[in-house]
């Protein structure tokens, strides 16, 4: 039994590593596809002199074949050394470490908000299928899914920060509580679209389960509403957990825009700056980082599948 699961986990981990390898290769290659000379691009705003260019070429192994360059870069990256930022001249790894906290805080808060509000709302809508509460929630979730985070941010800013003055407009604040206070609006803005999505998919999953024969059979045995609901939720949890895993990627896409809007110095804002400045080492590091987080989450979701779906567990153990 455990052998099968370990073999599955190992195979799945191997696939993840291959995926990350190919992806990092492509991300590294992007530098050479960008318009202009690579060495000049890497120089940034420094004076273009033959000596400077030569030094850059040596520093990035630009005279070596592409795969050798990539190999050097990947080797250093694995050791935590992502090179130096073109814009600031500082080590990229340090920059990421400084900023990861804010992004993690916003994303974590938004994820918690979306799940804690979205799942119960989706379940409630499914149980009241066709009635006004359901229609209201479904309608609201369509608007939520359609609203880009930055548009929501600006409206929230106008209403709650500029208009009512309840929340700060920009920045991170001082100390823990004030810091948290500064993160409320950004997290809500990020959570809104995500939460709407959670409502939609939870409702769909629960509705699908409610229509199953086993629900009719459970009711025919005189089981109470609570028991039947528990059975339904246990079954509906499988697709919901899967989709929640996929949302981690969505979070990272959204956080770029939110951080830019609220002028928060997180990874997302760093990505925007780096892209606009063509700060290749930073972009490469960030992309590989996000891809790693997303792939590892997908891996964890697959393993979670084993825990919550006995059918999948059985298939995995046998194969």
């Amino acid at each position: 039994m455990n052998r099968g699961i370990l073999a599955f986990a190992a195979r799945r981990l191997g696939m993840t590593l291959v995926l990350l390898l190919v992806l990092s290769l492509l991300v590294y290659g992007l530098m050479f596809l960008a318009p202009g000379d690579v060495a000049r691009n890497l120089l940034g705003t420094k004076n273009v002199t033959p000596e400077a260019l030569a030094q850059i070429r040596a520093q990035y192994d630009l005279d070596e074949p592409f795969l050798v360059q990539y190999w050097h870069w990947a080797g250093h990256a694995l050791a935590g050394d992502f090179g130096t930022s073109i814009r600031t001249g500082g080590p990229v790894g340090r920059m990421l470490l400084d900023r990861v906290g804010i992004t993690a805080a916003i994303s974590g808060l938004a994820f918690a908000l979306a799940v804690l509000a979205g799942v119960p709302a989706g379940v409630a809508a499914a149980l009241r299928r066709g009635r006004w509460a359901d229609r209201l929630l479904v309608g609201g979730s369509v608007v939520g899914v359609s609203a880009p985070g930055f548009a929501v941010s600006l409206i929230l800013l106008y209403v709650f920060a500029v208009g009512l003055g309840w929340f700060p407009i920009y920045g991170t604040g001082e100390g823990f509580l004030d810091g948290l206070w500064h993160l409320v609006l950004p997290s809500v803005a990020l959570a809104l679209g995500l939460g709407a999505f959670v409502v939609k998919l939870t409702r769909a999953a629960v509705v699908r389960e409610l229509d199953q024969d086993y629900v009719t059979f459970a009711r025919s045995r005189g089981l109470g509403r609570g028991t039947v609901l528990r059975i339904v939720l246990r079954n509906a949890a499988i697709p919901i957990v899967t989709s929640l895993g996929l949302m981690v990627g969505y979070l990272f896409g959204g956080t770029v825009l939110i951080e830019v809007t609220f002028a928060l110095p997180g990874l997302g804002a760093l990505l925007e700056d780096a892209v606009l400045f063509k700060d290749f080492p930073v972009v490469q590091a960030l992309t590989v980082l996000v891809a790693s987080v997303v792939s590892v989450t997908a891996l964890l979701v697959d393993l979670a599948y084993l825990a919550i779906d006995p059918r999948v567990r059985n298939r995995t153990v046998r194969s």
Partner: peptide, 21 residues
């Protein structure tokens, strides 16, 4: 598909469109 879906589309678009111009 595995490759492209490993990164959120919006983020990839920012990187690719931003770097390629």
């Amino acid at each position: 598909a595995d490759l492209v879906l490993a990164l959120p589309a919006v983020l990839l678009a920012i990187v690719v469109a931003g770097l390629l111009g």
